[in-house]
Simulated assay, not measured.
Amino acid sequence: MAPVSQLAIAYPFLGAMWLVVMMSASPTYEFLGSLLFLMIGPIFATGLAVALGLPLRLNRRLSLWWVGNWAVYIVLAVAGALLLVWGYNKPERQVGEIDGFTYDVVLPDVGLLMSGCLLLTFLAVNAGFPRRPKRVSPTPRKLLSAQ
């Protein structure tokens, strides 16, 4: 599982990212729903990323491949950023009526924005530095023979 310190460091950044993305993709008529989603959205996304990353942490061979594989990290970061950019550049028109008031708004594509956020959340929660090899202390026999 992801270290608690990594989750604690990633959560403020992920919460801010989710806040910016969801509030920019939310029309004013859904403000309360967006605020409620913002309270549980980052926690849910982080939990989902941890759950999806469990095979990367529990399988030894997969973990050795994943941890410190910077090429995969860069590909995932670029893919997440491209999904966010594409979501903002691809408008989605919403038309309807709520409580007798009609609305006609053009918003960013929420599906692409959430996909980009989830991908970046997965990367922030599961990426890690390669493990350092353990230093082997010399055995007493080698110390005695060296003298």
Rank of each mutant, 00 (worst) to 15 (best):
M1V: 14
A2F: 03
V4D: 00
V4Q: 01
A8W: 11
I9S: 09
Y11R: 03
P12T: 05
F13M: 07
A16T: 12
M17V: 08
L19Y: 13
S24E: 06
S24D: 13
P27T: 15
E30V: 13
F37E: 14
L38F: 14
L38Q: 15
G41K: 13
G41F: 11
P42T: 00
T46E: 11
A49H: 01
A51I: 09
L52T: 04
N59G: 09
R60W: 09
S63M: 14
N69M: 14
N69A: 15
A71M: 10
I74H: 06
A77P: 00
A79Q: 11
G80Y: 04
L83M: 12
V85P: 12
W86Y: 09
Y88C: 08
K90P: 01
K90A: 13
P91V: 10
R93H: 12
I98D: 04
T102S: 09
Y103S: 13
D104H: 03
D109E: 14
G111I: 03
L112Y: 13
L112T: 09
L113H: 07
L113C: 05
M114P: 00
S115L: 08
G116K: 01
L119W: 00
L120Q: 01
T121P: 03
F122D: 01
L123E: 04
V125N: 01
V125Y: 01
P130C: 02
P140R: 11
P140N: 11
R141N: 03
A146M: 08
Q147C: 09
